[in-house]
Design a protein around this nucleic acid. Structure first.
Lengths: 359, 359
DNA sequence: TACGCCCTGGAAAACGTATTCCAACACGTT
DNA sequence: AACGTGTTGGAATACGTTTTCCAGGGCGTA
């Protein structure tokens, strides 16, 4: 097919590429030609190379030409030439969960502030998926990879994941984990244990004694830590062992477990405490469906302080985690000069509202 | 500033690249060498080029070599060679808002299913920011750009935005807008007007007559359409004109406006209807803060049916929008064969719950 | 046995940008 | 006026991949 030279059908393909290749948009060559300078000069005009000056007149001429033909530098080409991209990868379990979307908001905002392009992947709460994602992520050559999942201990993929991340780091990448201490990478460590412990003390202080604790599979680190902290707090306060129910780490899990807990008709617990807010919200609905009034008949508390806790009725008692800040911190940690593993603690604070009135 | 190359101290950089350039990870060359074949063959071994076969033995040898040295193809380099990337860009106003995070979940999931890399940008509800984002997005050369913002009419940037997107499309990109009819691009059109109209009829059917309508600035298209639809529905039902209050398109806006509306002590309206759920949630809280009971004293309704509507007390009446599906549809539309502008309608449906009991 | 064809591997070019190296030039000093 | 120095533009090369083009080998047919 020696069609080239556009001789065939000169209509249609207008600005299309030299060799029939569908080239997308004007290139630096085009700008240079338009401005009457060399590509080298054009390139320098944009990102004024250190150690080199380009005559102001040329700069403005190049900039004008670029503006005129609508040039935008090809980021992939830059990445190739420079040897490093300007993308930052974020892996979350489920972007539709307010816990993750708040963290994501922080990460993305921080990334944009650094002129980085944030990419986000959803792992669907599956360690296998997470591993697979990280693997393909490496092809992207992002500057940083931030993983805000629910670390699952002993999931079998941990070794492979570490290995993958290790290789990524060896190639110059930066890894930051959110709330997943235990793997050998920099981490934003949410004080889950301490917060849960403080919550236990606060609730005992308000007169609660018989607790139903809703936690997820013990392999889910976050749940494990929160649950453990809460139990420790109870023990320290000399309160008898609570009823611990294991369920899914979701709103539905909270609903189901509470439904089960309340089966007998009259409640056997003073309060239901869930390891996160969405579970607690499910619990509140289950309490209502059982014909009881959350807060009055059964106290309810969660964890995270997602944004609409205060808009519930009764407003939900919880442990506040500065999620947005967690995201920003993760990004800052990833971009910091400090190579090597660092753990940045993030404090949590108990917020008592009407869902756990004094009793 | 970029770390002025460790070139001075020759120690340190171990596995670094040939010319001191900080090369990230093994390349196809390395794989080829390791497998004892040429780069061409190695490349073909991975993505078995059409019109070419490579001997099975070589394929497995290459794959084994790649596995051994932990090779991942450099996506930027592929993008350069192929002339097109595998990224899909999503622009949202605020990822922390459940409306957008649900749509984002749909878009991202659909993108991943197509092995595309989703990038997301946050426009912070600012048209200027949005324009700026789209501009820099073009440098990314994404296959598709999906914009789920709150189109703001007459914001002054509309022309420039269209121009930018037009240029992007001309270069082979695909643009899809979510719920922003009016611009000359393919759109997933949420039936805001129809849904609002149906809501009006349903509420009138339940006995409500005096409405307080909370909408945002008329320039915000979504708000405008919903508000207009609701008023039309009321008019059609022969109900007297409601009190329309203009406020911010957020939870705080809903709260403030309702607070104002209820100032006189005894409510002058039967129901408060907000143009989205987060505003309605703010309204419910304001109603409570005024010493009234939402649902019983004042009906409340929203729009979107974000996930926790049913967990509120009273459960929030609203107009359901299949947000996840909207995201998926946007992606499908973007990837479809069909060039040219298409508008895919998405139906909405009224969901009456306890926040608007029969009156 | 010779010819031609299909098949497959390798060398080289291309993608768009940044940068190194070289040449040309202006300017100040002697 | 000659020389050195500092500055600036342009050609060429590199980045990692895909793809084209070319050459060599195996095989069937005449």
């Amino acid at each position: 097919m020696p069609d080239l030279a556009g001789g065939t059908i000169p209509g249609m393909d207008g600005a299309a590429g030299r060799r029939g290749r569908r080239t997308s948009g004007p290139t630096l060559h085009d700008v240079a030609r338009e401005a009457g300078v060399s590509v080298a000069t054009a390139s320098r005009a944009f990102n004024g190379s250190s150690t080199r000056n380009v005559k102001p007149e040329y700069i403005s001429r190049v900039l004008a030409a670029a503006e005129r033909i609508g040039y935008q530098p090809h980021l992939s080409a830059q990445a190739i030439a420079l040897g490093s991209t300007r993308t930052a990868a974020l892996v979350v379990s489920d972007i539709d969960d307010p816990y993750f979307s708040s963290i994501a908001a922080g990460v993305i905002t921080a990334a944009q502030a650094q002129r980085l392009i944030p990419t986000v992947a959803i792992a669907d709460r599956s360690p296998d998926r997470e591993l697979q994602i990280v693997r393909t992520l490496r092809g992207q050559r992002p500057r940083v990879i931030i993983i805000a999942g629910s670390r699952i201990d002993g999931s079998g993929t941990d070794g492979a994941l570490s290995e993958e991340l290790e290789a990524y780091q060896a190639a110059g990448g930066r890894v930051v984990l959110v709330s997943q201490e235990g793997l050998p990478f920099s981490t934003v460590a949410i004080d889950n244990g301490g917060g849960a412990r403080a919550l236990a003390e606060a609730l005992v202080g308000r007169g609660y004694r018989r607790f139903g604790v809703l936690c997820a599979a013990p392999a889910i680190r976050t749940s494990h830590d929160r649950c453990g902290g809460f139990l420790a707090g109870l023990a320290a306060a000399g309160v008898p062992d609570p009823t611990v129910v294991e369920t899914a780490f979701t709103r539905a899990g909270g609903y189901d477990a509470t439904h089960e807990l309340l089966r007998g008709g009259r409640p056997t617990v003073d309060a239901v405490v869930a390891v996160n807010d969405v579970m607690a919200i499910g619990a509140m609905t289950a309490i209502r469906d059982a014909g009881l009034v959350p807060g009055r008949d059964v106290g309810v508390a969660g964890f995270d302080d997602i944004s609409w806790c205060a808009d519930l009725d009764p407003a939900l008692s919880t442990v506040a985690v500065p999620l947005h800040e967690v995201g920003v911190t993760a990004m800052r940690l990833a971009l910091g000069d400090d190579r090597g593993v660092r753990v940045v603690p993030v404090a949590t604070s108990v917020v008592l509202r009407d869902s756990t009135p004094p009793r």
